[in-house]
Computed example of a mutant assay.
Amino acid sequence: MNRNLSLATALVAGLLTTTATAPLALAQAAPAAAPAAAPVAPQAIPAKIALVAFEQAVFATNEGQVAAQGVAKKYEPKKAQIETLAAEVDSLKKQLQAAPATLSDEERASRLRSIDTKEKQLNRDAEDAQTAYNTDLQEALGKVAQKLSVTMKQYAQSNGFTLLLDVSNQNSTVLWAQQSTEITQAVVDAYNKTSGVAAPPPMAPSPAARPRSAAPAAAHPAGK
């Protein structure tokens, strides 16, 4: 899956916000005159560690897939428009390359200016579309991530795990772990069961087009 850095940052930030604000809310709700609770002495307990690829889990849920496909469908017209403009630029370049040597300098300069103008417009449109696509995708999947984090923590607690490590990032410090400690799919299955969202049908493959790195992706995020 494509591991978008902005998405990963948003997911982690959302998770941190959820866990960091709860104690504050409880403290504000407590009566001012209530006696302070006795401090709890820290104690060592047997560790039971689980690993989860949280970002990938968000994409893998039925709701995450539906959300990603919805964003992709929204940008299909823009993608088609960009591909059309890209084909036009290509055609103009080929025409200029095939132009006879007798072509005047003035005509050649005019064609070059036209190509340059259209190519700059193409790059602007592609960059704007990509930015808008990423923003919408991050927002849509961020909502799923907030709900999935609740399911994830409930699953870990109910199964007696004392520590949960997110290994979404390739730079994770976890070098090796037993396969049985990986709970990503189990969390996805638990979320799908409670969300009530059915798995979406696979998207039809897009027709072959000239590759452009700047053009917005039309399909849902896929693995690397």
Rank of each mutant, 00 (worst) to 15 (best):
T61H: 07
T61V: 07
N62K: 01
N62Q: 06
E63F: 09
G64E: 13
Q65S: 02
A68C: 10
A68T: 09
A68E: 13
Q69P: 05
Q69V: 04
Q69Y: 07
G70M: 13
V71Q: 12
A72R: 05
A72L: 12
A72E: 14
K73D: 10
K74F: 07
Y75E: 10
Y75G: 06
E76T: 11
E76R: 07
E76H: 03
E76M: 07
P77W: 13
I82S: 03
E83A: 10
L85D: 09
A86H: 08
E88C: 04
V89T: 10
V89G: 06
D90Y: 12
S91Y: 05
L92D: 15
K93R: 13
K93F: 10
K94E: 15
Q95G: 09
Q95F: 10
Q97T: 06
A98F: 07
A98P: 03
A98K: 02
A101L: 13
A101R: 04
A101N: 09
T102C: 03
L103E: 15
D105H: 07
D105M: 13
D105I: 10
E106R: 05
E107F: 11
E107N: 13
R108H: 04
R111E: 08
R111F: 05
R113V: 07
R113P: 00
S114A: 10
S114I: 04
D116P: 00
D116Q: 08
T117E: 13
K118D: 13
E119M: 04
K120G: 11
K120D: 14
Q121Y: 02
L122I: 04
L122S: 02
R124P: 00
D125N: 00
D125P: 00
A126F: 07
A126L: 02
E127W: 01
E127D: 14
D128P: 00
D128K: 01
D128C: 01
D128S: 01
Q130C: 00
T131C: 00
T131G: 02
A132L: 12
A132S: 12
A132H: 03
Y133K: 02
T135S: 12
T135N: 13
D136K: 00
D136V: 07
L137N: 04
L137S: 04
Q138D: 15
E139M: 10
E139F: 14
A140W: 14
A140F: 12
A140K: 09
L141W: 12
G142N: 12
K143T: 15
K143I: 14
V144T: 14
V144C: 09
V144P: 02
A145E: 14
A145N: 09
Q146G: 12
K147D: 15
L148N: 01
L148H: 04
S149H: 06
V150W: 05
V150G: 06
V150E: 15
T151A: 08
T151C: 06
K153S: 07
Y155L: 10
Q157L: 08
S158A: 05
S158N: 12
S158I: 03
S158Q: 11
S158L: 09
N159F: 11
N159C: 04
G160I: 11
F161C: 00
F161P: 00
F161H: 11
